[in-house]
Nucleic acid binder design. Structure first.
Lengths: 336, 336
DNA sequence: AGCATCCATGAAATCGATTACTTGCTCTCT
DNA sequence: AGAGAGCAAGTAATCGATTTCATGGATGCT
C-alpha cells in the first residue's frame, strides 16, 4: 500500500534524516569507517537499503579529487590485437575497482589529442594509450597536469613514461630465422611505416636475421606499407609481379597478413611456393590454405602489465618510469 | 626564465581574477553564452589560454546533473560483431559530444548488474546494453532512476525499452531457403541457446523455411549449442558422427562457425559434401576451403541506430519506446 | 573526587562549475 | 524628463558526498 513516490534518488542527507543521524555518520558507514557504533551503523545500513540509496560517484569524485575511471586510447578497437589488450586491461583493473573509458583514435593524432583532453577533463585516475604516432608532445600535456600515463605497444619519445612493449626486433628476427632454417632464401618483408615504433623495430629484426644468416638484402623484397589490409594486398601483388618472386614473406602485422592472403588466393598462388609469417594474434582467422606462422605474443598480458604499471604509478606518482619489454613470444604454427 | 610554478590546475575563479571579472562571466564565456560583451569575452579567452585553463568536467557534471558519458555493456568485446557495433556507437556519439564507458559483461548477469550499478552511480547520460540474458528486472533498476536505456541485439522482456535488433527469423529463413534452392535436403542447424532472443528467433526462421519448402524436420539435425567456438566444434563432430550426415549447416553465430570449420578441417571433410551458412560478421576470417555464406547485417548500423535512439530519448525522456528492426540483411558469399 | 584522554558524533566547510537572482546602467518611448 | 524595458555583469546558492574541526560524554588514572 505504499504510495509510489516521485522516484527521486535519495541522497545521504535523506538517509541521515531517516536514520536520525548526521550526514557525516552516513558517509562514514558508506566508507566502512570503523569509528562508528556498530548499532548505529546497522541502523544506517537499514535506512540505506530501505530507501534504496545509490551513491552519486560524481559528487564523490569532486570531493575526493579522484575518480575510479581509467582512460584507454587505442588506434583501432576492431583490431583483435587491441581487443585482447583492452580485455587484459579491463580484467586487471576491475579487480582494483576501476572502470574503463574506451576511446578509438583511428590512428588520428588530432582525434587522439582531443580524447586526451577529454579524459583529462574527466579527472580520470590514469590513462593507458597506444599512441597513434610518436607524439611525445601531446602526452606531456597529461603528465604535466599530473595524470598518470602508461604507454603501450609503441614507445613515445624517450623513456619518460611507464611503458609496455614487445621485443619486436627479436620477434621479427625469430620469424625470419625460421624461414632461413627451412631453406627459404628469397625472404620478403612487408613492413609497417618506418616512423612507427613497431614498424621500424620489426624491419630491423628482419634485416638482422638476414645478415646473421649471411643472406644479402634485396631492396626489392622489402615493401613499405601501412599496416592496413589493403596495404598488405597491394604489397603482395607488387612482390609477385617480380620475375623472381619471394618464397617467404614476413609480414609486419595481422591486418596486412589478411590482405596478403587475399591477394595470394586471388592470384591462385601455389601454396607450396610461398610461406607466410606474421605478428599479432589473428584469433578469428581460419585460413588453412597457406602456410602461416604467427608470433604468439601474450597479448592480454600487455594489458595486465599496463594495468599493473598504472596502478603502481597511481599509488606512487613519483616512481621512476619503468619500461617493460615483453619477450618476443613463441612462434605458433597457424597453418603449415 | 619563468619560474616553474607548482603546476596546479587553474580554476574558473583563478581565470576570473586574472581577467578581472566574476566567475559567472567566465562560465558564460566557457559556455558560449551570447549575453556577454565581445570585448570582455575576448579578455576572458585570453586569460583562459594564458593560464592554460582546463575544464573540470566532474564539477560541471555535478552541477549540471548530467554527464557527457554514455555507458555501453556488451557480452564480449572480442567478438567482431560487438566490436563493430561499438565502433558504430562511438562514431555516432562522438558527434554529439559523448564519450563511451565500455564494459564487458562476459555474458555474466551478475557482472552485468554490477556494471549497471556502477554506470548509474557515474550518472551517465544513458546506457546501451546488449543483455547477457533476458534480464528485464535488472534493467528496470536503471529506468526507474530515469537513466535512458537502449537495448541492442537481444530484446529484454517486453517492449518497454528502445531497442535495435536484427530480423533474425527472416535472416535464418533466407539462409535456409538458399540451401533448399541449391538442392540441399539434409540441412542442419547449430542453434544458440533457446532462452536467448537471437537463438530462438534464428531457430524459428530455420524451421519456418524448412516447413515452407515442405521438408520434414529432423530432430537429429538440430544441435543445441552455446554460441561458443568450442560449442560449434562439438556440434559438428556430433552431426558428422551420424550415418546420414547433413549436406548443409545453418550456424547461429560467428564463433560457432569458426569451431565448425575447425572441426571440418580436422575431420578432413570433403568441401564438396557440405555447405555452411552463418550469422554476424567474421571480418578476420580467411577460410576459403569450405563454402560459407554469411548474413551481412549492417552491424555498425546497429550501433549508429542505437546511438540515435539514445540521443533522442535523452532529449525527450517521455518518448514512446521504439523498437527498430533492422532488415535481415543480404547474403554475402564468403567462400563458395 | 578531579582532571586528562579518547572517541563517537555532528555542524559546517569544501571540491569546482553553473545559474537563479539581483544590481545598476543604457536606451526608448511618451 | 521620467518610467519602463532590456541587458550585461556580479553575488551567492547550488549540486551531493566527504572531511575537518568542534563538542560532549565516558573512561581511566592519580
Amino acid at each position: 500500500m505504499t504510495v509510489v513516490a516521485k522516484s527521486t534518488r535519495p541522497k545521504v542527507v535523506d538517509v541521515a534524516r531517516h536514520a536520525g543521524v548526521s550526514t557525516a555518520t552516513v558517509s562514514r558507514v558508506l566508507n566502512n569507517n570503523p569509528r562508528v557504533d556498530p548499532e548505529i551503523a546497522e541502523r544506517v545500513r537499514a535506512s540505506l537499503s530501505e530507501l534504496g540509496y545509490r551513491m552519486n560517484s560524481v559528487a564523490r569524485s569532486l570531493r575526493r579529487q579522484s575518480n575510479s575511471v581509467v582512460g584507454v586510447i587505442v588506434p583501432d578497437i576492431a583490431n583483435p590485437f587491441f581487443t585482447d589488450v583492452v580485455r587484459g586491461i579491463g580484467d586487471a583493473l576491475r579487480d582494483d575497482g576501476y572502470m574503463l573509458m574506451l576511446c578509438n583514435s583511428d590512428d588520428d593524432t588530432d582525434l587522439e589529442a582531443s580524447y586526451l583532453r577529454l579524459l583529462s577533463a574527466q579527472q580520470v585516475s590514469g590513462v593507458i594509450v597506444a599512441p597513434a604516432d610518436s607524439l611525445r608532445s601531446d602526452l606531456t600535456e597529461l603528465t604535466s597536469t599530473g595524470v598518470p600515463v602508461v604507454v603501450i605497444d609503441r614507445l613515445a619519445g624517450t623513456g619518460d613514461f611507464d611503458s609496455v612493449v614487445f621485443d619486436n626486433r627479436t620477434g621479427a628476427a625469430q620469424l625470419t630465422a625460421r624461414f632461413v632454417e627451412a631453406g627459404r632464401r628469397r625472404i620478403a618483408h612487408i613492413a609497417g611505416p618506418e616512423r612507427t615504433f613497431t614498424g621500424s623495430a620489426r624491419r630491423e629484426g628482419y634485416l638482422e636475421a638476414l645478415a646473421a644468416a649471411g643472406i644479402a638484402t634485396d631492396g626489392a623484397l622489402i615493401v613499405d606499407s601501412d599496416y592496413s589490409e589493403e596495404g598488405g594486398y597491394r604489397a603482395v601483388r607488387e612482390l609477385l609481379a617480380s620475375s623472381t618472386p619471394p618464397d617467404a614473406i614476413v609480414i609486419a602485422n595481422n591486418a596486412m597478413t589478411l590482405g596478403a592472403i587475399r591477394a595470394l588466393t586471388e592470384l591462385d598462388v601455389d601454396p607450396e611456393t610461398i610461406a607466410l609469417a606474421s605478428f599479432d594474434p589473428v584469433p578469428w582467422s581460419t585460413s588453412q590454405r597457406y602456410s602461416l606462422v604467427v608470433l604468439d605474443h601474450e597479448t592480454m598480458r600487455m594489458g595486465t602489465e599496463a594495468a599493473a604499471l598504472l596502478v603502481a604509478r597511481i599509488g606512487e606518482p613519483s616512481r621512476e618510469p619503468e619500461i617493460r619489454r615483453l619477450s618476443a613470444g613463441t612462434v605458433a604454427v597457424f597453418a603449415d
